[in-house]
Design a protein around this nucleic acid. Structure first.
Length: 384
DNA sequence: TCTCAAACGATCTGAAAATC
DNA sequence: GATTTTCAGATCGTTTGAGA
């Protein structure tokens, strides 16, 4: 059975960041600086992960293909990598050395991309050996086609938010029933205007919020008296980061409609609906990647480590860990971090708790001397 | 001025410690 | 032993910075 740590795309991302980092060998350097970090992805086409070179302001979008597929799957991947050039400055494809019929697919794709008509395209190709990758062999990933020239054109759809944002789906308070209601409203108002979220969905939802008609995770009416414009954003961000609505129009996507359907059939507070939310957050929302990092972090600590003595130092230490590996964006200059949650991680543990992804003792997910105990069997069954 | 993505600031809760 | 106090941890409403 697959384990959490079989997240090969995440492992590749780590290897690339490590190689490009201050202590890396720089085999994957090409035109990039060492000041490079992982950032978030959203919209369509959707890359598996994305890096940002802060010194050059280059974005670099990656398509990862798992092992054991037919040749055509990998050929498709090369096409996907090309489409990423619409929003990212550079892109890359990561494929296994061989397809399932023992054909040297990586070599074939590399040769294809070096054809004269394609030779200047800013697309890199990496090849990996699955078993060596899983065993943590640093030489398991190799760059077989590199980006040698700077691209002069700015991608037509280069997004401003690419200059920041965590790689996992950002989340605030949105509860299961609130998520359902937002999906329902997006369906009701589908296509009514170019931005139905602003024109219909949010105004309706805000009214319900003000009248105490929407509930928190605990089923209590939510009390919001001001700051509606900020809440407008905080409710919207997870919806489009998870690909449930279109960021621009607010219309439901196919995935959003599928989730709504499950909520309609089984009820918004049902286990089935909750499981589906959890699955989407883990996979599309890339919280699985984050949980794996958290596991790596807490496993690296000694039982009596300072970081394991309080939840505050635990999450502070986790942020330092992510930062060291380039897995979180640069902190915004000028912002102080004196709040009681001085970390990029704020509501994520609560969210995992509500989705029953953690094993909770006495209502507490943080366990002194250990960290967070995840419900691994539930997570593996959700991601199938 | 609006949007996105935080950071700030405060309350609530329950268990442990202190006090009676 | 019972009651009160304290405080860490969990929760979430509010405000802010940066960029378009």
């Amino acid at each position: 059975m697959a384990t959490l740590h079989d997240n090969l795309a995440g492992i590749c991302c780590m290897q690339i960041l490590k190689d490009l980092g201050p202590s890396g060998k720089g085999d994957f350097q090409q035109i990039f600086s060492k000041n490079i970090r992982r950032i978030g992805t959203s919209g369509w086409p959707l890359a598996d992960f994305q890096l940002l070179d802060y010194d050059n302001n280059y974005t670099w979008a990656f398509e990862f293909k798992p092992p054991g597929q037919q040749k055509r799957e990998y050929v498709t991947g090369l096409g996907q990598a090309y489409t990423y050039l619409n929003f990212a400055d550079y892109s890359a494809l990561i494929v296994p050395v061989m397809s399932n019929d023992r054909f040297s697919i990586a070599d074939y794709l590399s040769k294809t991309s070096k054809l004269e008509v394609l030779s200047n395209s800013p697309v890199a190709i990496f090849a990996y050996d699955e078993s060596r990758l899983l065993s943590g062999d640093p030489g398991s990933l190799s760059l077989i086609r590199s980006i040698n020239n700077k691209r002069s054109e700015i991608p037509p759809n280069k997004k401003s938010e690419d200059s920041g944002g965590v790689f996992w789906t950002w989340w605030r308070d949105t509860s299961d029933t609130e998520l359902y209601r937002l999906l329902e409203l997006s369906d009701i108002h589908r296509g009514k205007s170019p931005d139905i979220y602003t024109d219909y969905v949010w105004p309706d939802f805000q009214k319900e919020l003000a009248n105490g008609k929407v509930c928190t995770w605990e089923g209590e009416p939510r009390r919001v008296n001001s700051g509606f414009s900020q809440h407008k954003q905080n409710y919207k961000i997870p919806l489009f980061r998870l690909g449930l609505i279109e960021q621009d129009s607010g219309d439901l996507t196919e995935e959003g409609y599928d989730l709504l359907k499950i909520g309609k059939i089984f009820k918004p507070n049902s286990a089935v609906f909750l499981d589906e939310i959890a699955r989407i957050i883990l996979t599309r929302g890339q919280h699985l990647d984050l949980i794996i990092q958290l596991e790596n972090y807490q496993n690296s600590l000694a039982r009596d480590a300072e970081e394991l003595q309080s939840s505050k130092s635990f999450f502070g230490g986790f942020e330092t860990w992510l930062d060291k590996q380039g897995l979180i964006p640069q902190r915004k200059p000028g912002r102080v971090t004196t709040g009681n949650k001085n970390s990029f991680i704020r509501d994520e543990p609560k969210l995992w708790n509500k989705l029953h992804l953690t094993n909770v003792k006495n209502d507490q997910y943080f366990e002194r001397g250990y960290g967070i105990k995840f419900n691994i069997s539930r997570i593996t069954s959700l991601i199938r």
